[in-house]
């Protein structure tokens, strides 16, 4: 970890308001430009930051390299934090953050892989990232690219989409070890997931870790907890409504 942040854990009383990784906070503010963001924007930033800062083997110079790790943002509306992290890591120029969503902006309210360097998939309609991630993981394996990992970030409400369960069952049954799903769980699924989101994966043979979605060290441990024989899911729990 290269940067200490204000959000390394929830020990003690949580301070009011969003606590953001220091390099990201001003960039997110620049994107926000006085607008109101939903709490879910802030709740996703921590896991995005831990991934890009500590885990993913990808840099602005390797966005086309076959050996790179892939990060697929399936819940495409969590985009402001994503753009801020990509800018903090040099994937997109800082001045792209201004007028986000405007007529000449490359940064929409959902990301487009053909417009934004480092973005692996265009998303927005829920339930597409995990299937694309399964295909990406299979394609890497078929070409003997055994080092790269594929991470797909979803939301707990996104799991309502049945397409996810097609992917979860198949990836588990075939032991797709280079695939890791990350579910940011802010208890927003209308009918909930009794027993926890992770159970939907583990019953299909995935390994799972459920952690505090604001605890960077816990996230790091969970996101690197693959057993290399089975697909892995990290459920990052954040406050309801975040």
């Amino acid at each position: 970890m290269t940067t200490m942040t204000a959000s390394t854990g929830r020990a003690g009383a949580a301070p009011p308001g969003p606590r953001l990784p220091a390099p990201v906070a001003p960039l997110l503010d620049r994107i926000r430009a006085g607008r109101e963001f939903g709490a879910n924007v802030y709740s996703t930033v921590d896991v995005l930051w831990v991934l890009y800062d500590r885990i993913l083997r990808i840099t602005p110079e390797t966005v086309e390299a076959p050996e790179r790790d892939r990060f697929l943002l399936s819940k495409g509306h969590a985009v402001a934090g994503y753009y801020a992290v990509l800018a903090a890591k040099g994937f997109v120029p800082l001045d792209w953050l201004d007028d986000q969503g405007g007529p000449t902006s490359r940064l929409g309210d959902h990301p487009d892989r053909l417009l934004v360097p480092g973005v692996e998939i265009g998303s927005g309609s829920l339930g597409h990232g995990l299937g694309l991630g399964v295909g990406t993981a299979l394609g890497l394996r078929a070409q003997g690219l055994l080092t790269p990992r594929v991470y797909v970030l979803l939301g707990d409400a996104e799991l309502d989409e049945g397409s996810n369960h097609e992917a979860i069952a198949y990836a588990g049954a075939t032991g797709l070890a280079n695939l890791t799903a990350v579910v940011v769980d802010n208890s927003s699924a209308t009918h909930g997931w009794p027993g926890g989101a992770a159970a939907r994966f583990t019953v299909n043979g995935w390994t799972a870790a459920t952690v505090d979605g604001r605890d960077h060290d816990a996230l790091h441990t969970a996101l690197t907890g693959q057993d290399n024989h089975r697909p892995h899911v990290v459920v990052a729990v954040v406050d309801s409504g975040e």
């Binding site: 694309l132 299979l138 394609g139 198949y170």
Partner: peptide
């Protein structure tokens, strides 16, 4: 076995997997 992929009766996944495969160059 790595290039003939039967996903079961899951057509959404079938096409999603095709998209992912294509993104890796297949």
């Amino acid at each position: 076995p790595d290039r003939v992929l039967n996903v079961g009766i899951r057509e959404q996944l079938m096409v999603g997997v095709a998209g992912g495969l294509a993104l890796t160059g297949l």
